[in-house]
Design a protein around this nucleic acid. Structure first.
Lengths: 348, 348
DNA sequence: TTGTAGGCGTTATCAT
DNA sequence: ATGATAACGCCTACAA
């Protein structure tokens, strides 16, 4: 006997369900479901009636229920080491730009410890089964990594993957451009402020920028005067610059290439603290084109971070659909921006 | 006849369900559910067996299903006008700090248009039925606003609500402190760079900071020399400062109080573009203590943004539980930080 | 074009 | 302490 006559009022306080709308519109739940999702086959009359009823009742589909039933979450997750860096916040904004337009949500998480990174590698990711795709920003999984099959598709930003989808910029080229700029200005002793987690080695990003710098220097038969780890933080940049400024006058660089603008801000601080002038006493070029860089006149290599976020989102959306998942590494263009923090060595 | 014998293999590719674990551990689904959630009543032996099976099968509960069944999403949403500001990214980091520790997720969204703000006011919020609580950052709903009953509980950051829970800082005091600092240095013509959306009036934040500035000025029988809208962006700050610098020498302020550090960065740029020096020709004090402010020597009023985020998260968690929802406005301390962008008028 | 009804995977209620 | 089993609210074959 199937007369389990549904209690007509929703159990939970005042939340209207699809059944309420169906009743009010005088159609079946299926029709409501279809009408709400703009399925073409519903007759305009009915669609109208359903929409009106839904509006009247202030109805929205319970996303958990839809997800359970459909198997799609309409949610993309983003994971980054820290949420406070300029880079990550630009990236998130770019992601949100397109995800929101596509009716998807953005779930964010910081990946603080290396242990958690390990989890990720092994398929115990944070957002497992909660997202249709995962965007990894500056979480360096290793280029040979392949997401476990139990995981949602992954888009990696900032590292080139052998297989799978990744995107970023040409870091080697960026390192080359920044360094050549300094060489063109006559600098021959150039210090590098690289970045990476304290326990780990440098990040792949740093590796490539360093390689690019080395390539530029090689044409003059030179090597970096020093390489410091600035941890990609302002404070780290300051410490790194301090160490550089502590070098003896004979070996101290006349120019610094900082692998992020934020580290360059810290370096500028250290330099000024010592009463030195930029670019009078020392030149400095950054990387990113941080929103503040123009204001402080920092020469830098601009990368289109927000656009990177948008592309990543588009790719994530694609990956979350049934589309066959492409395998490639997309590169966005970068550009050297010369401002007032770099000057000819001879003009000093 | 109820012999709808469950197909024993999961329908979707390779995803293990609670049934798989139950079978492997030789217990019921209910026990698996309880063991996984650390319910006290499960015998240690069984718990072990379940956990082992779960680990073996790499099982994690499908969150949509749990949510549907339990009615709790274990997710908090945050909505802000833009995601790229320093303030919002600090806030998000603070939220994530505590949410993650509590096993909750963070859903983020930008609230770009005023229309959407209207939606929010009327209970058509973006994350309706997707989150256990909503944190509104700098989304000014009006102090008399009360969330519609159909909505999740709301925590408002940056605006004091008559009823409901809100938190922030004493903006009036902040405005007072910054302005008194300039007055103490001998400045008498002080320009304000306020903020607010282009179409709307100033934000409540700006209102209060302006009021604080006015109070400080009043003790000298003064008024602001000018008030410009810098839109809380770097570029807006630059434009606002330009407008101020265009004033005739007789009326041009000798000091600027910018309602955010980011606008101050833009202002610094505008000032230096004209070949003017800070603080030699003009003093400037900001608001926030942006991460970069120390590097550029900007005097400012520090507010503990990340901590604000943490508190908001704690409150959101509380609100999402069954706890009765407190009604108050929590204020966090602020502090004037004097650096090198402000100097005595007479030392010029 | 619309309705019927059987899942989706988990939690919660009730027995035992 | 454990096990059945009915929700939870929606979607999607399939039938009409």
């Amino acid at each position: 006997m199937t007369n389990r006559q549904r209690t007509s009022s929703p159990r939970r306080d005042g939340v209207t369900t699809i059944a309420d709308v169906a009743r009010m519109a005088g159609v079946s739940e299926a029709t409501v479901s279809r009408a709400m999702r703009d399925f073409p086959q519903v007759r305009p009359v009915l669609r109208e009636r359903v929409l009106a009823a839904a509006a009247e009742l202030n109805y929205v589909a319970d996303s958990n229920a839809s997800r359970l039933a459909s198997g799609k979450t309409r949610t993309i997750g983003v994971i980054a080491p820290q949420l406070t860096t300029w880079y990550v916040s630009q990236m998130s904004a770019g992601l949100e730009d397109v995800l929101h337009a596509a009716g998807n949500d953005l779930l964010v998480s910081a990946l603080s410890t290396p242990a958690r990174r390990q989890d990720l590698r092994e398929g115990r990711a944070r957002f497992r089964q909660r997202v249709d795709a995962l965007v990894l920003v500056d979480v360096f999984v290793g280029r040979d990594w392949t997401p476990p099959p139990s995981e949602p598709p992954v888009i990696v930003v900032g590292e080139k993957l052998d297989s799978g989808y990744s995107l970023g910029i040409d870091d080697e080229l960026g390192g080359f451009l920044a360094t050549r700029h300094l060489l063109d200005l006559g600098h021959r002793r150039i210090g590098l402020v690289a970045g990476g987690a304290p326990e780990s080695d440098f990040s792949p990003v740093s590796e490539f920028r360093t390689a690019g710098a080395a390539r530029a220097l090689r044409s003059y038969d030179l090597e970096p005067a020093t390489i410091q780890n600035g941890l990609f933080t302002i404070e780290g940049g300051r410490a790194a610059a301090s160490a550089i400024l502590d070098m003896s006058a004979a070996t101290r660089p006349t120019a610094i290439f900082s692998f992020s603008d934020e580290m360059a801000f810290g370096a500028l601080h250290a330099i000024r603290e010592r009463g030195l002038a930029v670019p009078g006493d020392i030149s400095i070029v950054g990387f990113d084109d941080h929103t503040v860089s123009e204001s402080v006149g920092l020469s830098t290599v601009r990368q289109p971070v927000r656009e990177l976020g948008r592309r990543a989102a588009q790719r994530a959306l694609l990956a979350s659909s049934d589309e066959p998942f492409g395998n490639d590494h997309e590169l966005l263009p970068i550009e050297l921006i010369v401002r007032s923090s770099t000057a000819s060595l001879h003009s000093i």
